[in-house]
Design a protein around this nucleic acid. Sequence first.
DNA 1: GCCAACGTTGGC
DNA 2: GCCAACGTTGGC
Length: 160
Amino acid sequence: MPEPRYWLFKSEPSSYSWDDLTAEDGQTAEWDGVRNYQARNFMRDDMRIGDYVLFYHSNAKPPGVIGTARIVREGYPDDSAWNPDSRYYDAKSDPANPTWMMVDIKAERRLPRFISLNELKANPALADMMVTKRGQRLSVQPVTAAEWAEVLAMAERAAP
DNA sequence: GCCAACGTTGGC
DNA sequence: GCCAACGTTGGC
């Protein structure tokens, strides 16, 4: 059995929040609209069913990790790319050879407490975590097993 | 609302 | 292939 892997998915709560995810049928959503090649490659090549996801609210007050999810469907074509009515429409994406891919995620649980970006940045154990780095805009990021465990442990402890 | 950082585009 | 211009992300 392959090693489970860990990811962080960013979403702006004003467009798609944790509550939106948990309100879905089966608490499962298609993660469409990713239009960055590096993020696409992670979804197409690396994500496996069962991988763990930190659900992160970006552009929020404050930004931070609110819950966990799992990958429940591996990379497949993002059909919003050839839907002219979609805000994610990409005229250059050919349905016969799709440029953009998506995965499905299912909500697992809301963290016992929200872990803000400030708190992530203040934890020396997370100094190398991508999301704590300035200017890091990748909307889908790998997370190490140690980082995953640390964030969950923080959520079990009282606020600092 | 501001703006730094970043990815993409397109002229050359 | 270089790089300036542009649009977007996302923290503050």
